[in-house]
Design a protein around this nucleic acid. Structure first.
Lengths: 220, 220
DNA sequence: CAATTATGTTAGATGAATCTAACAATATAC
DNA sequence: GTATATTGTTAGATTCATCTAACATAATTG
């Protein structure tokens, strides 16, 4: 069984993996906020337990065992976030820190009960998919709002970033998942977008914000 | 802030304290399932942080800061147990192990929400008092069923032991908190008791069981 | 392609929480 | 009240997760 520290490395490895599944030591060190030698010794440990493949001076790759383990931790994290929002009345900006701790609890029944009580949700409060019990993750390919042409109507489906600051920004603009957005115009100079939704007739969203808003095109 | 390990020592110290608040090193070692030298070095650490008073070759005593900290951890444990039973449908025999992990979560709002959702309960699923937010614990002096005379009627109010085995025994006999018990007779030889309750007209309870059943006398 | 920059590794140290072996103090019991 | 048993302490080692300093390899770039 992986220690809490090891679990956090697995999660970071999973999230940092490029399309080939590779992760650089320096990126991992940066993500984990530890020094590179620390990562170096930890990847050796993780390799010994069969969680990843490591060769000197090469990026590391999770084994399928490691990928599954990571996905199951992410499953616990996302189920917890959804439970806190749906069953305990938390705001979507409050749940990450708590889920970060609860994801390490070893109690299968606890997470099964959460899942059951919520009717087996497939996404978390930020629109990210919840891996299933086998650690399989359903990849949904949303589009970034920054890629949408003026005139189109879309539904806000997920967020590419779920930092508290970003979530609080969205709260201040009354933006939540499921909101229908009409793209009124795009500014060529700074790539900002003007949208209308609900009782917001013309809200300007910067490129930085648009990149993080993942949407589905509404075909009417 | 105390580490998870330190929190467990504080909790054990709180539970093992005699009426003078003293705890022996050997009892603590036994409770924590570690060696005495380990406890010896840990009590020195805990003293440096002001959680307890330690003098060579003397039993240790929690400071009031240490007592409060311990009570607040126990508060989180008991709130969690109650939440798992009342809001998530767990049996009283299933919750200890989970609460043992969740009690170390640092998230005041999580426990405040649990408390709120349950209407601020004062006891946990095993009848033990839940310390308040200031770490004050309301001492309730129930009587052990083994001390009750034949002919009396009592209400099962709490348990002096909450091991899974004992709770499963009680489940098998349909005994739960709030059950009204009529003491039919006491056996002088082995101190067993015959009680009637619900649809159990004559159930014999051994002395060992009676000692762990804490009751209130029903004055009619 | 050689020089520079970025990335990765080794060696050695540290603090936390644990252990065993050996020793010391206190308590108990004839 | 000494001998024995219980309880507590010291010393020294171990494992985990971390660090810094120094060095090595790989990648980038003029």
């Amino acid at each position: 069984m992986a220690s809490q520290t090891e679990e956090n490395y697995l999660k970071s490895l999973f999230n940092l993996a490029n399309p080939q599944g590779e992760v650089n030591i320096s990126d991992l060190a940066n993500q984990m906020q530890v020094s590179m030698p620390t990562v170096n010794s930890m990847v050796k440990t993780l390799q010994k337990s069969g969680w990843l493949i490591y060769e000197k001076y090469k990026p590391v790759t999770l084994t399928s065992k490691g990928q599954k383990e990571a996905a199951l931790i992410i499953r616990k994290h996302r189920l917890t976030e959804m439970f806190l929002v749906n069953k305990m009345g938390f705001g979507w900006e409050e749940v990450h820190e708590i889920a970060e701790q609860i994801e390490h609890i070893h109690a299968p029944k606890l997470f099964e009960r959460m899942d059951e009580m919520m009717g087996f949700p497939t996404i978390d409060p930020h629109g990210s998919p919840i891996p299933d019990k086998q650690g399989r993750i359903q990849e949904i390919n949303y589009l970034s709002l920054s890629k949408i042409k003026a005139g189109q109507t879309v539904i806000l489906a997920a967020l590419a970033n779920s930092s508290t600051e970003f979530l609080e920004f969205l709260n201040s603009r009354n933006l939540s998942l499921g909101t229908e957005l009409h793209i009124l115009s795009k500014e060529a100079y700074d790539h900002s977008i003007v949208v209308s939704y609900l009782n917001h007739p013309g809200e300007t969203l910067s490129e930085k914000v648009c990149e993080k808003l993942l949407v589905q095109i509404l075909d009417i």
